[in-house]
């Protein structure tokens, strides 16, 4: 009964959100609530965009192990940032209009990601090649990032560093409204494409036989994935294994690859982990900066489990 499980997930997610908003309210309640609401909005966007982009990416590439961030898409986004700092200097970078810069970065990332990945996805290549190419892309972009980071001024490096580590406490609230529009548009597009995604999961040939124009759909979906990755990376920084963890969990919870159930399940799971985890770390454990580390640890572990025991294919 995927419907009932979805309802349970939705309930749990709601509980996490309420807990996040209300636990430990003190002092000027209106001010605290407003502050928390902004942060909550950012966390929700990050959860949803990572979940949706990972589901779509896994369907298009026909695997359960690769995610946009393992393929280095978020590293590519950071590369753009560091390149800007390198070219303009830390002050020039900081002086840029944040929203304008964000818009430009998204467009560049969409173009680069599509240009790099499309040749591989036009015809579905085999899993081993995809995985290898993905890991190498990831390493390439990360190495380029550290190369550039070594070339720039130490003061500028501080600017870069702020952007290069996942941080769920210090979210970029100035981009929130712009990112929200993108995220909501992304969800609407993904939801409307749910049946197409179900068919695309059958493989390029079968999908073409059923009337899907494969390359056009793959291109569109890749653009969508890169926009969503840009949103989450811009708001909190890169998170490598979160998407993998969330989708693997959601798939086991609803026990189907039907996108009408899997996409909402993945979004809700992401919300539970991120918002619930953040609440727990802030109020339960007191050391709130480690949520990113824990998520990466558990996600990396899930990655290894999937690799060793094989995903259900």
């Amino acid at each position: 009964m995927p419907d009932r499980r979805l309802l349970c997930l939705a309930g749990a997610a709601l509980l996490c959100i309420v807990a996040f908003m209300t636990i430990g309210l003190r002092g000027n309640i209106g001010f605290v609530l407003a502050l928390r609401a902004i942060k909550l909005a950012a966390l929700l966007q990050v959860s949803v965009s990572i979940a949706v982009s990972t589901v779509i990416f896994q369907t298009v590439t026909n695997n359960r192990i690769l995610t946009p961030s393992i393929m280095g898409l978020d590293a590519l986004y950071l590369f753009g940032q560091i390149l800007l700092v390198f070219l303009l200097g830390g002050l020039g970078y900081a002086a840029l209009d944040a929203q304008l810069k964000f818009g430009g970065e998204i467009i560049v990332l969409m173009a680069l990601a599509t240009g790099l990945l499309l040749p591989m996805l036009r015809r579905r290549t085999d899993m081993g090649l995809m995985l290898l190419a993905g890991i190498i892309f990831g390493i390439l972009f990360r190495s380029l990032n550290s190369l550039l980071a070594r070339l720039i001024d130490p003061n500028d490096f501080a600017v870069v560093q702020g952007a290069s580590f996942a941080n769920f406490n210090d979210v970029r609230t100035d981009l929130l409204a712009f990112a929200a529009i993108l995220t909501i548009a992304g969800i609407v597009i993904a939801w409307r494409a749910r049946h197409v995604l179900d068919v695309m999961a059958l493989g390029a040939d079968t999908a073409t036989g059923l009337g899907i124009s494969w390359s056009r759909n793959v291109t569109g979906l890749l653009l969508l994935v890169s926009a969503l990755v840009a949103v989450s990376t811009a708001l909190v920084g890169p998170v490598a294994f979160f998407g993998l963890l969330v989708v693997a969990l959601a798939e086991r919870l609803v026990d189907t690859r039907s996108h009408a159930a899997l996409m909402p399940a993945a979004m809700l799971t992401a919300v539970i982990i991120l918002v619930g985890g953040q609440t727990l770390f802030q109020h339960g454990l007191g050391s709130s900066s480690t949520l990113g580390v824990v998520i990466e640890f558990v996600g990396g572990f899930a990655f290894l489990v999937l690799l060793v025991f094989g995903s259900r294919k």
Binding site: D205, G211, K313
Partner: peptide
């Protein structure tokens, strides 16, 4: 449009899980 007049079954049709 073509998918409404012509169907194909390939020999290596892979099928997803679940």
């Amino acid at each position: 449009d073509l998918a409404r007049i012509l169907a194909i079954l390939r020999q290596d049709s892979i099928v997803t899980s679940r």
